[in-house]
Structure formats: structure tokens, C-alpha cells
Design a protein around this nucleic acid. Sequence first.
DNA 1: TTGTAAGCGTTATCAC
DNA 2: GTGATAACGCTTACAA
Lengths: 343, 343
Amino acid sequence: MTKKKVTFADIAQYTGFSKTTISRYFNHPDTLTLENQEKIADALNVLGYRENKLAKVLANGKTEIVGIIVPNLYMHYYSEVLNQIISGYDKYGYKFIVFIGNGSKDTEKQYIEELLTYNIEGLIVLSHTISSKQLASYHIPVVTIEREDKYVCSVNTDNYMGAVQATSLLIKSDCDVLIHINSKVDPAVPSAKRIDGFLDTCRENQFPHELVEKDIGNTYAENYENLKRIVGEIEKRYQGKKIGIFMSNDTHANVLLNVLLHEYHYEGFQDKFKIVGFDNSPISAQAIIPISTVGQQIERLADEAMQLLVMQMNERKKRSPKALKKPIHKVITPILIRRNTTN
Amino acid sequence: MTKKKVTFADIAQYTGFSKTTISRYFNHPDTLTLENQEKIADALNVLGYRENKLAKVLANGKTEIVGIIVPNLYMHYYSEVLNQIISGYDKYGYKFIVFIGNGSKDTEKQYIEELLTYNIEGLIVLSHTISSKQLASYHIPVVTIEREDKYVCSVNTDNYMGAVQATSLLIKSDCDVLIHINSKVDPAVPSAKRIDGFLDTCRENQFPHELVEKDIGNTYAENYENLKRIVGEIEKRYQGKKIGIFMSNDTHANVLLNVLLHEYHYEGFQDKFKIVGFDNSPISAQAIIPISTVGQQIERLADEAMQLLVMQMNERKKRSPKALKKPIHKVITPILIRRNTTN
DNA sequence: TTGTAAGCGTTATCAC
DNA sequence: GTGATAACGCTTACAA
């Protein structure tokens, strides 16, 4: 039916009004008589009008589109954040063009360039490759989530607090010594605070502890072998002691659990080992023994990010926009989730 | 620096050419002298030009934007499909506006309407709520993935073949009786073929079997309780027999595994039960005993979908576009992944 | 309350 | 090879 597109011109002709009046019907309906509003409304139906946002954008500059760059969707954390952000459409009305970073700084910059050609109003960045300084240089509203954020607005989980919660839980679980296994993390990345939180809590409580800073690989098999070795060493070092292990994420916590179950046949390994993970990803709940973990409040993380972005985008639409003097950094407290790998 | 946007007009003025020539520089560079090409290239750099795709779109209608509607990103299968499709940007150049269906037909229709106002060139649909008839009525290129697809182009996994592979593997694993646990599935949905594949294979081999068609809930706890009960009944019914269970997906296969391990203390439960899942989701590899499964070739699924869509979109750009007489349905063969829950 | 006309930044159609 | 000029569909002063 709708062969050609119906435009304001068609409606104007049909109703006898001018294009301007049709435009006003959409943007300032109250400036028309009710009668005329109805006339136009009828015409819209009869002709089967569908608005053309692109034409609108060309005229007023508001795309209502936000760009997102995620490192990957393989990790549940990222897909859940993406999920929550995109679902924000219902609340904020912004649409999202999504790019998946492939780790290369240059291609990610290209992605941003491409997004800019579409006049996106703002950008949400979860990938780590592009520095916040670089991001700031684009002079568009930006919010980063859980990454280096010196020069741009950001939302982060309170990783320090999360680590404190995890460590405290292990202490309360009657452990004799505490271990934190993590890869070497750039101190500028928020998750580096997990290490600080662990160390500080142990020290404050004058609790025996050890930090194992080692990259344990990217595949399940690599993780398994590396953790098997690490656990072997730890066990030797702390014979007869009850060991609490704070893992940097749930995926690794689960591998650790499997290692202990398989290699050490601890049917009652719970007497010997306690485990806390991080992220509250599905695996932590689905593991053979549900794993205690620190859950990021992803829904809030996403919502705060959108609020921060919307604020910047609105400011920009004002007659005399004022850039923020300082980037705003929001922090979301994580929630400790007690399951079966701790008391 | 780049206070105001640099337009063709600016470049034209700077170089002394007309806007037309600048446009030609981008679209038909070979019709300019090399000398002039360089002049313009220089100007572009000096002035810091960035193209405006929206203006371009208004003039020629090609947005290079495709809409995607996914039911959720909680299930790894969907996030992985999304991942692969979006990554197709590097190959096909299309950008993606993503919506997450919330199960309501009306809101998903609204999403499509919104996408249409942006003149998207095509649509990829993974969510199940909107009928293919309805989708076809929008008269834009559409491809669906693993869902009802009567009136539109689609790409699906060969679910029947996957079920045949899974069932055969269980037979080869020396089982005495085969069980398939699945919820009640609409026969129009491709995954319904898994049931057919199971039943046909059992019958052809004259193998004892049973189909358990039951909804086992949406949470881990529900899954656990339901499967515990189901397994209890099955065990009673087939005492002393080796039971092969084909689960409809890996998440449930993992719960089943945990049930068997916990409730039945089958250290050597492998002698009694064999399990095959479906999807090759991360959990199948990370489970305490890695689970054999049928893996969908998601990368191919996504790529075929894009090819099918690009084909339709290109046809539409021709002077006299010809609509397809019949929708095209592509089928991708899944791959059996043998791990430790089968021989 | 409504209309006129000039943009918004490109592309396409003619001319020259 | 290059340049006017008219679209593309809508918004927005400025008038009336």
C-alpha cells in the first residue's frame, strides 16, 4: 500500500494547511485549534504517515542516538551491562548503535569516527583500549563504565568495598589464612582496587595473607592447569590450615572449585577451603557448589551511566552549554552474596 | 578546535571549487584531475572535515543501518549471536541499532516503528513475539534466526540433525534406554525439530525411549527441584538400566548433572547416566564434569543471516527491485561436541 | 493561530 | 572535468 513515503507536503496539501502547521502539530500541538489538530490527525491516518527522524535530525541536530563500545559479549558481565543500558530506551528514549571492540585501538577509534558521522549525541565506553584523554578529545558527552576514567565521566563499582566485604566474609568463615588470586592489573583500572581492599582488610585485622599476582590464562584448560599448580603450592605452604581464597572473578572461582573437587577429592573440602568470587555471574549460582560472590549492581550501574550521559547531552542542547569543569565519577556499592562456599 | 562543523560549502570556498565537485571527490574521484584531487584532499585535512552521513542519507536514502531485535542477552546463545552479527560490521559495513525485546508484542512493534523512522535498511529478528506474517508486512528486508519464519527469510540450525547426533551418541555410549527432556514447544519453532530427531532416531534403531515434555521452570532452584523429581521417577522406572538423557539445552543439562552428583552421590555416576546437552554454552565446558553437547555454529549462523539480508538490501537499491517470490530459508548443520558425560 | 521562506549537508540532474 | 540548481523531509525565525 504505502508505495511512496508520505511527507509533510502531502499532509499539508491534503489538509489545506502549510508544512509549518503540520510541523507544529507535532512539536507544539497546543498552538493549534483542537479542530485543526483533529483534521491533521485524521489526515495522518488516512495517508499513513510515518515520521522521518533523519530529516528531523538534519534540521535540528538531535539524533537521539548513543554509541556504545563493549569489549566483547562473551563475558556475561558485559552482555548484562549492555542489556541494562539498551533497556534504558524505555526510560530515556535514546537508541543505541553498538560496536564490539576487538582490542585494537585503531579499529576502535574508527568505530568512534563512524559513530560521529551519524551525529550520535553521546558515547558509552566499556572497552579499555582508548585512553580517557583521547575520549575527552572528541568533545562529546562520554561516560565510561569500570575502566580508566581520569578525563571523562564514569560509573564504577566500589571495588574496594567489594573486596573488603569478600575478605571479611572469609575471615568470618573461620579461615586461618587468606589468599587473593588476581592477574596483574593496571592501577588506573577500577578493579585494581580489589587488591587494595583485600590487603588493607587483612592488615587491619592483622590476618595472615598472601597475594598471588599471576595471569592464569584465557581458556578453561589453561585456568585449570594454572590454578591446580597454584593450589598445590598454597596447600604445601599452609598445611593443616583452613584457607580462604578470594578470586578475582566467578569464572576463575568456578575453575578453582572444580580443581579442588577433582584433584583433591575434598568431599568435605569445605572444612579446608573457603571461596569467594566476584561478579555474581550465572556460573556462580550454577556451579556444583553455589559460590559466594560479590555482585555488581549492574542495573544501577547502567542507569547511573545513562543519567550521567543524559545530563551532559541535555546541557549541550542549551543555548550556552557549559562544559563540566571536572568529570563526574559515580560509585556503586556492590552486594555480597553468601552462598555455599563460605559459612 | 573544530568549533563548527566543516561542510562541503567550506571546502568549496577554500578550494575554489563548487560543492558538486567536492561531492564528486568522494563519490566519483576518477572524474577529477589528480591535481584537483590532491587540492581537495589537502583542504580536507587543513579544515578537519568529517562526513555527515545523515545528510547523505537524506539525499540518497542509504542509512547503512540495520535493526536487530533480540529477546534478551541473559542467555549466552543470544549474546553470542548478537556478538557475531555486530562483528559483521568489519565485513559488510552495516551499523546496528539494537533493541531488547521484553516479550510484549506491542512494545516490540513499537521498536520496529522506531527503527523505521530511522530508515533502517533491514531488520534481523531473533525474538519470537511478532509473527513472520507481521514482519513481512513491513515490506523491508528481514531475516529471522531460529524462530518461526514462514513468511520471511531465515537462518536456522539443523535442529533435527543435532538431535540425531545427540541421540546417536547416547546410543553409542552403551545406554539401555534414552530420555529426552524438553518443554512443550510450538511446532513452528525450529527447535521443535529436536524432539522429532530424537524420536525418529530411537524408532529407527528400535531403541527403548521416553519423551518427557515438561516445563521445568525459570530459575536454578526450580530447575533443580523439577529435575530432581523427574530423575527420581525415571530411575525407579528403569532400575538397573543405563540411562542416556538428551537435555534441551546446556543450562538444564548442567542442573541435571548437579542433581545427579548431589542427590545420588554417583561418584561413578558415569556408569549409570550419560548426558548430552544443546548449545555449547560456556557452562557446558565449565561444569564440574564437562558436558557433551550439540554446538550451534553461531558464527556461520550470523554470517549467513547477514548475507541473506545484504542480498535483499542490495536488490532493493536497484532501479527495478524484484521482491523474492518465496522467502529463502538457510539451514546450518550443528556440530557434536564430545566431552565427558558420554563415552 | 497560521504561513513564508530560509536553512540543515549531502546527492543527482542537467548543463557547459 | 566542472558548476548551477533542485531535491531529500523537516525545523525555525520572522511575518501576518
